[in-house]
């Protein structure tokens, strides 16, 4: 990808053909990306999984057989029934349909993943750019604080935060966001440092471009690829982390249909009522797998330098 991309200048309304012509090179590389991507089985598998779960997020409430079961209905007469034609994944300890809860759990997990990654981006990217551009004591301070946060495994720090704030979806999101941003600071800072000394940035500065212009025209667009790759991976990891907090009992709380919490309750009913913790676990696995494969595939085409790593 070249620097200062043309796409950011507003295009006057002209014909489609004209637009195509003007963006021929971008389109060509996009087509190449698509081609490379679609040839990789694992990337396509990842994309497929992610799209499938996104679809469930969108249409979940309309396709599940017992939507009220996700809001805390009670059918004690049919509790802990094995999977059958009506209850594909069986029922839980208050007689709720596990299939319904797993499908609607997609929404909870995606919501957490998206918000956590978004907050991490909003905090991490500006800090990374500031650290990279400013240098000196400011960079030193930002990076040392980042280091301190990175010195504790995220899950442990999140555990400590949630232990203090109390369990719940909001607190879990807060805790995870709090431990997630430092990764972006590191990524963006090193990228900014590298870009800062590129000839085209020097050139822009020489012709009198302000810092804001350099950031928005030259630095940010070039950070997009690594951010997309990392964010895609992080979606999966944040969902996994949220499920982990749920499993410990400090994440989303019932009757919220959250996968980790479902496994946590379901394990008390192992081994006889195996379906209870099996299906939510499978859902986590497939979601995280999807995002990881997708992230891998995206890295292969967007960031080929680090390909084999």
């Amino acid at each position: 990808m070249s620097a200062g991309s043309e796409a950011t200048t507003p295009a006057p309304r002209r014909g489609l053909a004209d637009w195509r012509q003007r963006h021929a090179s971008t389109l060509r590389s996009l087509r190449l990306y698509a081609h490379t991507f679609s040839r990789s089985v694992s990337s396509m598998l990842g994309l497929g999984l992610v799209l499938l779960f996104f679809l469930l997020v969108l249409i979940g409430p309309w396709i599940v057989p017992f939507p009220e079961d996700a809001r805390g209905a009670v059918n004690l007469d049919i509790k802990l029934q094995a999977p059958d034609a009506t209850h594909w994944f069986g029922t839980d300890e208050v007689g709720n349909d596990i299939f319904t809860r797993v499908v609607l759990g997609t929404r909870v997990s995606f919501q957490i993943g998206l918000i956590v990654v978004a907050i991490a981006l909003v905090i991490g990217v500006p800090l990374g750019i500031v650290a990279g551009l400013a240098g000196g004591w400011l960079r030193e301070t930002i990076m040392r604080v980042t280091d301190v946060f990175l010195s504790v495994p995220g899950l442990v720090l999140a555990l400590a935060v949630v232990a203090v704030l109390g369990p719940g979806i909001l607190n879990a999101i807060l805790a995870l966001a709090l431990v997630w941003w430092p990764g972006y600071v590191r990524l963006i800072e090193s990228k900014t440092l590298a870009l800062k000394s590129e000839p085209f940035v020097d050139a822009a500065r020489a012709v009198g471009a302000g810092t804001a212009r350099i950031v928005f025209l030259h630095i940010l667009p070039n950070c997009v690829s690594p951010i997309v790759v990392k964010a895609s991976m992080d979606m999966g990891l944040a969902i996994l982390a949220a499920a982990s907090l749920g499993f410990i009992g400090l994440g989303a709380q019932p009757p919220h249909p959250e996968w980790g919490a479902m496994i946590s309750i379901g394990r008390h009913y192992l081994p006889d009522f195996w379906w209870y913790s099996t299906f939510p676990g499978l859902a986590i696995y497939l979601t995280v797998l999807g995002f990881n494969l997708l992230g891998d595939g995206l890295r292969d085409i967007l960031d080929p330098k680090t390909r084999s790593r």
């Binding site: 694992s42 996994l240 499920a243 982990s244 496994i263 192992l270 676990g281 986590i284 797998l289 990881n292």
Partner: peptide, 28 residues
């Protein structure tokens, strides 16, 4: 490809769930 699947899976598998699966099959 098979090994790649193993490696990607072992990131995606929730550790606690893997633990429960191991308990369920290997121990119980």
């Amino acid at each position: 490809h098979a090994i790649r699947l193993v490696s990607v899976s072992s990131v995606a598998l929730p550790m606690f769930w893997l633990g429960l699966l191991l308990q369920f099959f290997i121990s119980l």
